[in-house]
Write a protein that binds this DNA or RNA. Structure first.
Lengths: 224, 224
DNA sequence: CCTACCGATCGGTAGG
DNA sequence: CCTACCGATCGGTAGG
């Protein structure tokens, strides 16, 4: 007897989830383009062919919508981080994997990252705290990786705290300059950033992969 | 005869400049604390013990005030960059100096940098273009330094464009996490970031300063 | 899920 | 340099 009711219910929930998702996406696009405060919910609704009260039946306020966007923003990076950690690799491979996945996540979720970086002052204090905690968690895990690699002697890092913040920063900042229409696609950018991360912690090409050593700068390149 | 008039005039100009400066500073503090849109000009005026129309007699609009803040933000970084370039050093020392001065500038002007990063969508199109150009100029000059060092064979960089954006990003991002009350003062952070920049471009400790080589990770540290 | 509306805020200005 | 004000915008809701 609850069978049919439940099916209905699950369908209903799916529809609700779908609508919430579409609203979120429309908001992300508009907030990214013109900024949270300049974007009216009426304009968000317009993009969906609906009206403002429609949005209010799925989100209870504008700031709740913003919080949902910001939360997803780091959630995605954290997810990649956790997936990489689970694989149990040596420190170099772990950092390579984490760096690459993190960079790809930022480039893929560029709009979300931009909104989070720009709009923190428009979050409710409680949401701000929650999101700050997630951010701290990410930084801690990254720091942990550097710590381990340093103890093993495969990383050479003067200050682990600063190094992890630097890595986080150089990757996160790409939301500002990356253009999908640019010279490199996301994957190529992530590759290069990963290599930069590795050399930042003192791992040079010959130490990490199977490639042959190129410890010394290739002076040959200049002359030829 | 123009003597006295001119003295008066110059005094008058100084007073105007002083007032404009105080208004700017108050705005920076408030915009940084609660965000541009949440800050009313009335509240800015309050901090100066004045009223809103007072501000309007020194700035013609709220957005002009924002543009002035953003412009100064990069102006400071560009100034440091240019000062460093003028000294004519070898590539390694030049990058070290630029990195250090740039990092210090960001940490010193943390509030300005934060506002610029967050509020670009609130700039007039013309101001946005102007500021974007200054930003591009900075990136170009940094890239130029990497280019030169690479050609000389002292830097080992896979992709100069990405590397310069990465350096710019890791330093700029510090506006987010740096706390003057934290573990390290500005100078110490700048030092560590500079070392990270250098190892990112393949310069290890032994190559740069007069210090003895420590090419290999110091495995000794672990065992002892 | 829409029409119609309110209430409050705030950038900017007149006028002195 | 202030008092007093306007005009417009927009988040949120009532009521259906």
């Amino acid at each position: 007897m609850p069978d049919r009711a439940q099916r209905n219910n699950s369908l209903r929930n799916e529809v609700i989830a779908l609508k919430r998702e579409r609203i979120l996406e429309a908001a992300v696009d508009l907030f990214y383009e013109i900024g949270y405060e300049n974007a009216t919910l009426e304009a968000v609704a317009d993009r969906l062919g609906a009206t403002k009260p429609f949005i209010y039946s799925y989100y209870k306020s504008k700031t709740e919508l913003l919080a949902a966007i910001c939360e997803r923003s780091i959630q995605e990076s954290l997810k990649e981080m956790d997936a990489a950690i689970e694989v149990e690799l040596d420190s170099v491979e772990l950092l390579r994997r984490v760096g690459h996945a993190f960079a790809l996540a930022v480039l893929r979720n560029q709009k979300y990252i931009a909104i989070m970086a720009r709009e923190e002052k428009n979050l409710l204090p409680e949401d701000f705290v929650h999101i700050s905690n997630m951010r701290r968690e990410f930084d801690q895990k990254l720091k942990q990786i550097l710590q381990q690699g340093s103890e093993e002697g495969v990383f050479e890092v003067e200050d682990i705290g600063i190094a992890s913040l630097a890595i986080g920063g150089m990757v996160s900042w790409s939301y500002i300059w990356y253009r999908p229409s640019g010279r490199l696609d996301r994957y190529a950018v992530a590759e290069r950033m990963t290599n930069l991360i590795l050399s930042m912690v003192g791992v040079t090409a010959c130490m990490s992969g199977s490639a042959s050593a190129r410890r010394k700068p290739t002076r040959a390149r200049k002359g030829t």
